[in-house]
Simulated scan of single mutants.
Amino acid sequence: MNNPYRRSYTLLPNKNINFKEKRNKVGVLPDYSTFYEDLNALDHLRYFSKILGLKSSKENLIKILKRVELEDAIYLKTKKFSFGMKKKLGIAQALINNPDILFLDEPTSGVDANAVLNIHKIINDIAKHGTTIFLTSHNLDEVEKICDEIAIMDKGVIRAQGTMEQLKSNYDKNITVNIKHSILPPDILKILKKELHAIDSNVQWNGNTTSIVVPNENTIARINRLFLEMNIDVFRIEVDEPTLEEIFLNTGGNKHN
């Protein structure tokens, strides 16, 4: 039986669109970039600039190398580059046409911690200048830190998409709040139990620690005010939220039974 909700679409070329012009405003960094080992960083950019038909001045290419923090390796042959330096040169190559859209495939894979931080800084700086960046990565911690919007893809199908806050909200509507506070006298504890159970019945007590499940962040502020109004010292408030890894493992085809 045919699916009544399935639709077919035919894409017709728009003769008014200059695809070459659009393509020239796209930059790409593949996971593994190959360089000409006997060319230095500047000559490498010169070579690819000519391939793209660009008229890039020496000053402009040096500016790009400085932008990706390769100012000390402008005249160094790429065969002497570390893996992290090659990643940066790959980003520089992707920027020589001043792209509106930049695709970065695993931009920090295989590099050390310092190089990761530097590349993250470069990506954030590029984004601040108005370039739209599509980043693909298996490093979920990296994605959570630097991406404004996240899409989880399984077998070519996007299973979830949104900001990190939206993904968290869709994954689990409830928030667990753990509060470390001073020891409560029996009379204060009795009153506090009554007040907290009025907010939610899922409350756990353990000496100087109280855990409660709340529906939203506004309730956390309400609970904090309650403790302060009752002159209870609050030492720490911790919020248990799902990580991107948890959301990923429980989304679509990635879901573990």
Score class of each variant (00 low, 15 high):
R23H: 07
C147N: 09
A151W: 02
N216T: 08
N118S: 14
I191S: 14
R159Y: 04
Y5T: 09
D125Y: 02
W205L: 13
E238R: 08
D125R: 12
T78Q: 12
T136R: 03
L226Q: 03
G27A: 09
K63E: 14
K87Y: 08
F35L: 14
V239Q: 13
N216E: 15
Q204D: 13
L192R: 00
S201I: 03
L12Y: 11
S33T: 12
I150F: 10
I62K: 14
T176S: 10
T209S: 12
F81W: 01
L244F: 08
I188V: 14
V239I: 15
S201A: 13
V239S: 14
N124G: 00
G207F: 05
K58M: 03
S109R: 02
K58L: 04
S109V: 13
F227Q: 00
V157P: 01
K25M: 13
A160E: 10
E71P: 04
L102T: 03
N170S: 14
P13D: 11
T210C: 14
G156E: 11
T136A: 13
Y36F: 15
E21Y: 06
S56R: 03
N2F: 09
S211W: 01
L189Q: 04
L42D: 13
N170Y: 09
T209A: 09
S201R: 09
V213P: 01
F81A: 11
N16P: 00
I183Y: 10
D172G: 05
M153Q: 09
K58Y: 04
E37F: 08
L11T: 02
P30N: 11
Y75P: 00
A92H: 07
F83I: 10
N3D: 15
Y47G: 04
N231D: 15
I17P: 03
V234D: 06
F19G: 01
Q166W: 02
F48W: 13
D141F: 06
E165Y: 08
L104W: 04
L249M: 15
N170D: 12
L249I: 07
P215Q: 12
L89R: 07
D72V: 01
K77L: 12
K22W: 02
K22R: 15
P215D: 15
I146G: 02
N40R: 07
I119F: 08
Y5Q: 12
F19V: 06
N178K: 11
M1W: 04
N14I: 02
I223H: 03
R236W: 01
I133D: 07
H256N: 10
V143W: 06
V203S: 01
K15I: 05
K66F: 00
S201H: 05
N97Y: 03
Q93K: 14
L117T: 05
L39A: 04
I188R: 03
